[in-house]
Design a protein around this nucleic acid. Structure first.
Lengths: 251, 251
DNA sequence: GCGTCGCAATGTGTATCCACTATTGGATTG
DNA sequence: CAATCCAATAGTGGATACACATTGCGACGC
């Protein structure tokens, strides 16, 4: 038996989309750089058609821009963009916290508290990538309690866009200091359904990161162009995708 | 002389996207209905390729869903979805108002006040479609003062998704009553940079609409399936796109 | 030496073609 | 008569082919 069926992938676009998104999340496309469709297609073993469809999705996700007759370009990176994203995130999480206080059950709240406890204590506390993951899950969990699908999907989209910077942000001493206490405070307010204070903490908590946008962006640029010493996603010195163009030219 | 060049459209996708989006905004696709690619393609005079790319974008915009090997489906319509959208909108506009107080100049604020005055008084006050347009412009204008690109584009996306319901919402007596006074109040707070009170009004102002989601959705469904007596976008009794499938079958 | 024109190479835009999947209507069987 | 299986058809998934736009480079003229 041949497993299941190899006749038609039927979800090439999804696979291509996932692959490209992963690259884009980690800024493996250099900011502002033109993306070559045929190169991507051959590199992924598919034709240009699914690649273009996936790129179209990524445009909508904010990872690519598009210029007719010129093609797709990787997202740029400016401190303002990073700050804007954090501000929007703060707005959504604040509102979601309010709704979570109204709609979340005690059990659901305890579940989130437990997840954070597990994730944050069971691993090496210096593995910042893991901490960032736990942080993302914690915040997303609260927003899920709001039961507002739009807020959830918006936050997920934002999370993808800022994941690269979140890791950097959480590595800075300044952020580490407050993280655990602030999360405890949020959970505490959630338990007591203290909307006013909880909103305050959530907003402050995220705005803090927003304020560091410039430094975080600077560090991010350095990692993109000079390698990424602390990043878990680094690929043993692998160059950004586009560097391969040269090779093709010389071949 | 043929204008410029008719050799290649070069932006078929954009045109198709705009056309389909306009249909989707007005719920000219019946909720949940499967969208036929070939039919759309022939009806728009292009091939399936740009249609699929446009549909992919619309998926990202929230107007379509997609099932592999089955195709694209028009967005569904539930009161919960409408409410979720309004809640998210309230969250963004509240935060944007705060930023607008900090970042907007006096001139910019007066410009928005003027635009609202013009739009809301120069036309027949019973042309609710126009009122809805002015309302949308007013709110978007304030968010633009926040200078937060993410908030602006998110709000634009939300506006497209709720435009159909906004018209309905503004037709109800209950909403009309408060609209002008609330907008004046918002402008007033903006002028005085009264963040606390302004946020309050903005949030309330939008939450009011959120609370009517069920009625608005009901009315919306009625218009989608039984015609749309008050809508400015009605096409002289034209049927929804998909009705044409039958014709093709009988031909 | 410098600017400009034009041509060639690279790459995007989209139509079309074929493979495969889902669906539907009808025939067959319990 | 109802449920199920099968075949025909409609429709999607993706690769390819070709037309056109852009761009870079070299030749030519100034």
């Amino acid at each position: 038996m041949k497993a299941k069926k190899t006749g038609r992938p039927a979800d090439s676009v999804d696979k291509v989309y996932d692959a490209l998104k992963e690259l884009a999340v980690d800024y493996r496309f250099r900011p502002g750089e033109r993306v070559n469709e045929v190169e991507l297609a051959t590199s992924l073993g598919v034709s240009r058609t699914p690649v273009r469809e996936a790129l179209n999705r990524l445009v909508r996700d904010g990872f690519m821009s598009f210029v007719p007759n010129r093609g797709f370009y990787a997202r740029d990176i400016t401190p303002q963009d990073v700050q804007d994203l954090y501000e929007l995130r703060a707005a959504i999480e604040r509102a979601a916290f309010k709704l979570a206080c109204e709609r979340g059950t005690d059990e659901e709240i305890e579940a989130i508290a437990a997840i954070w406890q597990n994730n944050s204590t069971s691993h090496d506390a210096t593995d910042w990538a893991r901490v960032a993951e736990a942080d993302e899950a914690f915040h997303l969990g609260i927003v899920q309690l709001s039961a507002n699908k739009q807020m959830i999907s918006s936050l997920e989209a934002i999370n993808s866009l800022i994941r690269f910077f979140r890791r950097i942000d959480l590595e800075s001493q300044r952020r580490r200091a407050g993280l655990y206490g602030e999360h405890d405070g949020i959970i505490d307010c959630l338990r007591r359904r203290d909307v006013a204070k909880g909103c305050e903490i959530v907003e402050q908590h995220i705005t803090l990161s927003s304020a560091h946008a410039i430094e975080v962006t600077k560090e991010g640029l350095a990692r993109i162009f000079f390698g990424r010493p602390g990043s878990p996603a680094r690929m043993a010195g692998q160059q950004p995708i586009a560097a391969r163009r040269k090779k093709a030219a010389t071949g």
